[in-house]
Write a protein that binds this DNA or RNA. Structure first.
Length: 765
RNA sequence: GGACUCGUAGCUCAGUUGGUUAGAGCGCUUCAUUGACAUUGAAGAGGUCAGAGGUUCGAAUCCCCUCGGGUCCACCA
């Protein structure tokens, strides 16, 4: 054996050995053990991998989940459980389309140059080019996932399943289409769920604007607002009903400062009498609170801003201006008319920004598809809360269960429409007959020219056929009340397809079910509910919550028994990694430098669910030393085995020492096993590390050198430790195991029990 | 405003049913070692476990308060 462990030379070979033996596939491996009574014991252990973005290389967070999950999988496989780890990759709808559009932009093109089908195919090809990278990197990290069960989130079988789910939800009355306010990014051209909006603080102007009284234009009231630009569309103001200083205003009318149209003052308790002047203008089409107030009082919804982020035609002289420009101009006009009392320029305000591009999110009314989350018959959130109450799913991660409960209790209906191409098309078709005036379309005509938004009627009048429009279709805008049918295929000549796609989380929310139901025949019955869902805590609400909702809806059962939430990996100083700081750790770079085992150990050791951890090069280097320690312990023991002269020196051994050694060894086995059973992966790794290095190597090997411990005991200890350490450091342990097997006599082989460590038996006390 | 979380060795962090001298990695000091490993070993310095109070035979751990970080949510325009 070489003096040091050469990870670069061994890792790929070991992975190859495992794959050739089909060690990851529970159907091929003998994972069932017979009990004493001769019965087959088939406790299952299953993990569905959180699919990484198919288009991106892995980052350190992925390395973290692979380490944790692979440790659990390897442990249970060795224990003899029916163990499966189902891998996959994600199409990451908005992310990927965003990246692709940037690429198009470099070529001077945009998504408006292509019809839906063409664009979809282009992105598909683009993702295919990159998709091997992530899988390859997972293998480099040692992931013992069953690749024969691999799934991509846009595989036809997945798409079919998701479409059926939507159909079922629609049949059950859980789906509705409605004009609602949505968070819309005019740059990305899509709406977002409330979770996808970042809130940042910003210092803005708070304008105090005079509204003349209708019955006496010399009198006025003052309203404070940060958003003067949609004033032209406002029709109502509000005060608090119990605000004694404002009560005389209720029911009175003022004049709109821009349009001079009369506006009524209503009373609603949402108004804070202490803020501003205690009088609020209502803009129901562009403010969530105002929208709710308007619904309570049955006030009209008058949009002022369009999907392009510009003022609509009803804005008169402001029409066509972008929001920011319009604001400037409105303020100018009001100032000229002497209608601005004062401006507080130091007002700190929270605004929503796009989590993708960082631009300000507009709130716009748009017909979208929603899932009822608190339906009377199918109260999804309540069902999930019940699951938590009954502890059918346990959450590991400090305080995270409370956060989950809090969200479930307050969750609003789920907007699942996204205005992008890269995803699963919502299987809905709009009846067009009679609605040609109300439906708008954008498309590429047969000459390849982009036709911007116009009513269907107008395009038909221009001589375009339905067929031509359909072929080059980009976007359909059907009114909320438009009749539609749910169907994957075209129901007939008189229909146009919905062009929106599902929110990625709608399909990935079904991931544990889809992967099991569209794979090997009995997988679902065999592995559902899965044992552990392991993922980062920052997608607890996006993903874990949705999976639980879909699980209880589709199967009446939670999709997993345990949720292990790992923390964010920070840099050596505990700072958040970011490209701009330049402190991003590329896990594969360190795999090449120090080995996968070292990276895994560094990520796992001293990490605990729910909390962030700090990892830097020095830690990884330290763990590389540990791999080498394992290597050299084996090297030493192999040398002593070859050295026959040592044999007789053991004759008069004090067997009491051996007994003490075995006792302690059993304790270590018990401790590591115990921690793994409790999902305390970090603790398990730490115990195995310390006991191996500082007890077995530092003490026991030295004792053996002095002749105080038998060679047999030491060998037994070594074999036991290799088993214990294998889940954590699979490559080096398997490498030395092969070394032992290939150089060992029959007796040693018998002791090892298995040619491959990966499927060797987990030690018992 | 509500909620959650954290404050342990110079640095980054373990220590979840309260129980003997509080641990690890890296760093630091001194020494050792040409035969498992310098990617090593031995010895050591370094912590009033943020602060005050309470429960207890016993608290880093449970409760209350204070101070100081972090995160999430919320209709204060």
């Amino acid at each position: 054996m070489e003096k040091n462990f050469d990870h670069a030379q061994q890792e790929a070979a070991m992975y190859d050995l495992w794959e050739k033996a089909e060690a990851f596939n529970p159907d091929r491996m003998q994972t069932k053990k017979k009990t004493e009574s001769g019965r087959v014991k088939s406790k299952q252990f299953s993990i569905i991998m959180p699919p990484p973005n198919a288009n991106d290389p892995l980052h350190v967070g992925h390395a973290m989940f692979i380490s944790v999950e692979d440790i659990l999988i390897r442990y249970h496989r060795m224990k003899g459980d029916d163990t499966v780890w189902i891998p996959g990759t994600d199409h990451a709808g908005i992310e990927t389309q965003f990246v692709f559009e940037k690429k198009l932009a470099k070529q001077g093109k945009s998504r408006f140059n292509f019809d839906r089908d063409t664009l979809y195919k282009m992105i598909w090809d683009y993702v295919q080019e990159n998709s091997g990278v992530a899988v390859d990197q997972m293998k480099k990290l040692g992931a013992s996932a069953d690749w024969s069960r691999f799934k991509f989130t846009l595989d036809p079988s997945v798409v079919d399943f998701v479409v059926q789910t939507f159909q079922k939800m629609h049949d059950d009355g859980l789906v509705y289409r409605d004009l609602k306010l949505v968070n819309y990014c005019t740059h990305c051209g899509t709406s977002y769920s409330e979770l996808e909006v970042n809130h940042t603080e910003q210092t803005t102007n708070l304008y105090y604007i005079k509204y003349p009284m209708a019955d006496d234009p010399n009198e006025h009231i003052v309203v404070a607002t940060t958003r003067p630009e949609p004033i032209f569309a406002d029709q109502y103001l509000a005060v608090h009903p119990d605000d004694s200083s404002k009560q005389h205003l209720i029911g009175k009318k003022v004049l709109n400062p821009l349009t001079k149209q009369p506006m009524e003052i209503i009373a609603d308790s949402f108004v804070d009498p202490e803020f501003g002047t205690g009088i609020v203008k209502l803009t129901p089409a562009h403010d969530f609170t105002d929208f709710e107030v308007a619904q309570r009082h049955h006030l009209p919804l008058v949009p002022a801003i369009g999907l392009d982020g510009k003022i609509l035609e009803n804005g008169g002289e402001f029409a066509g201006l972008k929001v920011a420009e319009a604001r400037k101009k409105v303020v100018e006009v009001l100032e000229k008319a002497n209608l601005i009392e004062k401006i507080n320029s130091q007002y700190v305000n929270r605004i929503g920004t796009c989590y993708r591009c960082g631009r300000i999110i507009e709130i716009l009314p748009l017909p979208q598809f929603f899932i009822k989350v608190k339906d009377q018959k199918n109260n999804l959130t309540q069902k999930v809360l019940d699951v938590l109450d009954k502890q059918e799913t346990k959450i590991y991660g400090a305080g995270r269960e409370k956060i989950l409960r809090n969200w479930l209790e307050n969750l609003k209906d789920w907007n699942i429409s996204r205005q992008i191409v890269w995803g699963i098309r919502i299987p809905v078709w709009y009846e067009i007959t009679g609605n040609e005036e109300k439906i708008s379309v954008t498309f590429i005509n047969s000459k390849g020219e982009f036709q911007k938004t116009a009513t269907l009627q107008k395009r038909l009048d221009e001589g375009y056929s339905i067929d031509e429009i359909k072929k080059g279709l980009q976007q359909v805008y059907a009114p909320a009340e438009n009749h539609f049918v749910v169907s994957e295929k075209n129901p007939g000549e008189t229909y146009l397809p919905e062009t929106d796609t599902f929110d990625t989380w709608f399909s990935s929310g079904q991931w544990p079910i889809v992967t099991l139901k569209t794979n090997k025949e009995n997988d679902f019955d065999r592995f559902y509910p899965t044992t552990v869902m392991e993922t980062a805590y920052d997608i607890l609400l996006f993903w874990v919550m949705r999976m639980m909702m879909m699980g209880v809806y589709l199967e009446n059962k939670t999709p997993f028994a345990h949720v292990y939430l790992h923390g964010l990996v920070r840099d050596e100083k505990g700072q958040k990694m970011s490209k701009s700081k330049g402190n991003v750790i590329n896990p594969l770079e360190f795999v090449n430098k120090y080995g996968a085992d070292a990276v895994r150990m560094a990520l796992i050791m001293s990490s605990t669910p729910g909390s962030d951890s700090a990892v830097g090069e020095s830690k990884i280097r330290g763990m590389r030393n540990f791999s080498n320690k394992i290597w050299n312990a084996v090297r030493f023991i192999l040398l002593t085995l070859e050295d026959e002269s040592q044999n007789h020196s053991e004759k008069n051994l004090d067997s009491v020492k051996d007994q003490a050694f075995e006792k302690k060894l059993n304790e270590v086995v018990g401790q590591v096993t115990d921690q793994l059973e409790k999902l305390k992966v970090g603790m398990a790794a730490e115990i195995a590390y310390n006991e191996f290095w500082h007890w077995f190597c530092d003490e026991c090997i030295e004792e053996q050198k002095k002749g105080n411990l038998s060679r047999d005991a030491l060998l037994k200890g070594l074999i036991t430790f290799l088993r214990l350490l294998h889940p954590f450091a699979p490559f080096v342990t398997e490498t030395v195991w092969q070394e032992l097997w290939n150089n060992g006599d029959e007796q040693l082989k018998k002791q090892l029990g298995s040619k491959l460590l990966i499927v060797a038996e987990w030690p018992t006390e």
